[in-house]
Amino acid sequence: MSALSHTLSDSVVITRRNLIKVKRVPDLIVFATLSPIMFVLLFRYVFGGAIAGLPDGVSYAEFLLPGIFAQTVVFGSTTTGASIAEDLQKGLVDRFRSLPMSRSAVLIGRTVADLGLNAISILVMALTGLVVGWRITSSPLEAAAGFLVLLVFAFAVSWMMALVGLLVRTPEVVNNASFIVIFPLTFVANTFVPLETFPSVLRTFAEWNPVSSVVQAARELFGNQPASAPVPDAWSLQHPALYTLIWAAVILAVFVPLAVRAYLRTATR
């Protein structure tokens, strides 16, 4: 077998292992989806009436759901860091590193399993969205592309979190540390409110924030952005899917090698 097929088969074994945990601890998936459902309901019914400046012909539910999708998958990616820190703490990483297995399979298996989790939570949120008035008005192909952009970006963020988990080593700290970054990233964006209401400096940041482009891409691909909506000023939001994929590619190009290197050098203390 070649090195590549070794990596693939080892990654499948590790992915399966990670997904078995989800099966054994269903609470994980219940809570991972309950909080986005809560967000959908809160924003839709608490803030929804007060949020102005939406493009004509768009309900807040339509505007909101792509934002919630993006926020949830980015938060969902922090699981990667916490799970890797947990494996380190429990000595499992030592065991894996002492086996004649592929050097990147533990991280691939982790990020792929978390991609699966994110896909499940998007599905649950989409169903909730349909109940509160969100609709996909584009073609099935475009809709699929919308989900794909969300998942590709989340997968890239997972690799960033993998490195954080390997360096920080304490699951609780990984969560708290990443929230400090992820909260502003997902809020200083077009996630919940239109960018037109932002003060100028924040607005520029929000326009180039990849979370905004993920949301913008999802809105366009789900048909939640009517043709009458004003054309955004920033290039990043004029070509949101492309801009998002560039970000994902850059993040992966930087963080995959860094995370694998950290994995090879780390050991339970």
């Binding site: 292992r17 945990k21 399979a105």
Partner: peptide, 19 residues
């Protein structure tokens, strides 16, 4: 260093596959 969510059997089979 065992995965506590896997059964004993699953733990051993996983390590076997990785060997």
């Amino acid at each position: 260093a065992v995965d506590e969510y896997l059964t004993g059997e699953e733990n051993l089979e996983m390590v076997g596959r990785l060997y």
